[in-house]
Simulated scan of single mutants.
Amino acid sequence: MAAVPLLFGYHPVREALRAGRRKIQTVYLAQGKGSGRRQEIAELAGQAGTQVQWIAASELSDLVGHSRHQDVAARTSAYPISSLEEILTTAAVSNAPWVLLLDQVVDPQNFGAIVRTAHCAGMHGVVVPKDRSAPPTPAASKASAGALEHMRIAYVTNLVIAIEAIKQKGFWIGGADRDGGLCVFDTDLKGPLALVIGGEEKGIRPLVRKHCDFTVAIPQMGPVGSLNASAAAAVIIYEAFRQRR
C-alpha cells in the first residue's frame, strides 16, 4: 500500500486535528521565532494525544517535498471517504437537506475551493464520480483551507445512478448550465436540493444534464464565456443559501 502523503499547511493540519476524522500519527513543526500558529497546533496535538516533533524548516521541506508547508505538516491516515448513503443519512436529519454533486471537476484548486464554499454554506456532503475527478489530496485540503477535513465526500462509480438514488430520497436536482437554463436569481432553490456543478472545460455532461430536474444559469454582462467552476459554484451555492436562511 502506498504511503499517504503528508498533510501540510496551517489550516489543513489544524482542521484535521479539530475534526478528528483522521488518525494523526505525528505533527511536524518548524523551529523558529514567531511560532504563535505553531504553538496552537502543538496544543491541539497535545490535547489529541498526538506526537509532536519540532524540526528545522529545511528538514520539514524535505519531508513534504516542497517549501509551501507554512511550517506545519502531519503524518495521517488516508482521507476518510464517505458513502452516498452516509451523506444522505446525514442530510435526512435536516429540515432542508442539500448536497453538492461535481461532474468531473479535475483541478485540485477548484475542487478545494468548491468544497470550502460548500462547507461554509452548510451543505451536507459532496458527491463526485470516481473517474476524472480531483482526489482528496493534501493539496486539495490546503486549497479548501482545511474545510475538506470536515466535509463528507463520496466517490461514486456512476453519477447518473447516484442522481437517481438521490431523487428517490425526495431531492430536486438542479444543474448549473452555462449555455442555458433559468436565471439562478429567479429560481426557487429551497427544499431538498442537490446542485450539480460541471467540470472546468465542458460543464455538466449531456447525460447528467438530462437527469436534472431543472438547470440554472448565472447572468453575465462581459464578453468572457463563463465563470470558472469554483466561482460559478460559489455564486449558485450562496444564492441557494440566501433563499434557505
Rank of each mutant, 00 (worst) to 15 (best):
A73N: 02
Q39T: 13
L227G: 03
V52M: 05
P223S: 15
L189P: 03
Q168W: 08
S141T: 05
H119M: 10
P108A: 02
L148K: 00
F185A: 12
V27M: 05
A45Y: 00
A217G: 15
R245H: 13
R14E: 06
K167N: 13
D177W: 06
K210M: 12
V127E: 01
L195E: 01
F214G: 00
K142R: 13
A57I: 06
I114V: 08
V93S: 15
I166H: 03
M123W: 08
V184E: 09
I173N: 00
N110L: 08
K142N: 07
A96F: 09
I55N: 01
A73L: 07
Y10V: 08
A231L: 11
S94D: 14
R152I: 07
R178L: 14
R178D: 12
L17C: 08
G199T: 08
R14K: 12
K210Y: 12
V184A: 12
R242G: 10
T76K: 05
G146V: 01
D71R: 11
G225R: 14
R242W: 12
Q25E: 15
A233H: 02
P192E: 05
C183L: 14
P223W: 09
H124P: 04
H150R: 13
S94M: 12
T26Y: 00
M151V: 07
H11Q: 13
T90V: 11
E43F: 07
K23Y: 15
Q168A: 11
R132I: 11
A3P: 12
I197Q: 07
D131T: 14
D186Q: 13
G36A: 15
P12L: 02
Q39P: 04
S35C: 12
Y79S: 00
T187V: 15
Q168G: 10
Q109W: 10
R38Q: 06
G49C: 10
A143P: 01
N95S: 15
Q243V: 09
V115F: 09
R116N: 04
D131W: 14
L60D: 05
G9M: 04
S226K: 01
N228V: 09
A57N: 10
H211S: 11
G180R: 13
A113V: 07
I161P: 03
E200L: 10
G181W: 07
F8D: 03
F241I: 09
V224G: 04
R245L: 13
C120P: 02
L193P: 01
V105F: 10
I41H: 00
R38M: 02
Q109H: 14
S35G: 08
A113I: 05
V235Q: 03
I218N: 06
G20R: 09
D188S: 14
L29C: 05
A45I: 00
V208Y: 06
A194F: 00
A16W: 00
T89C: 11
T117V: 10
R209E: 04
A121N: 08
G146W: 01
I218G: 07
E59H: 05
A139M: 11
I87N: 02
T157W: 11
G112D: 03
S226F: 03
A57Y: 03
H150M: 09
L101D: 10
I218P: 04
L195Q: 02
I24S: 00
Y28H: 04
A56S: 10
L84H: 00
V126L: 10
E40M: 07
A19M: 08
E43A: 11
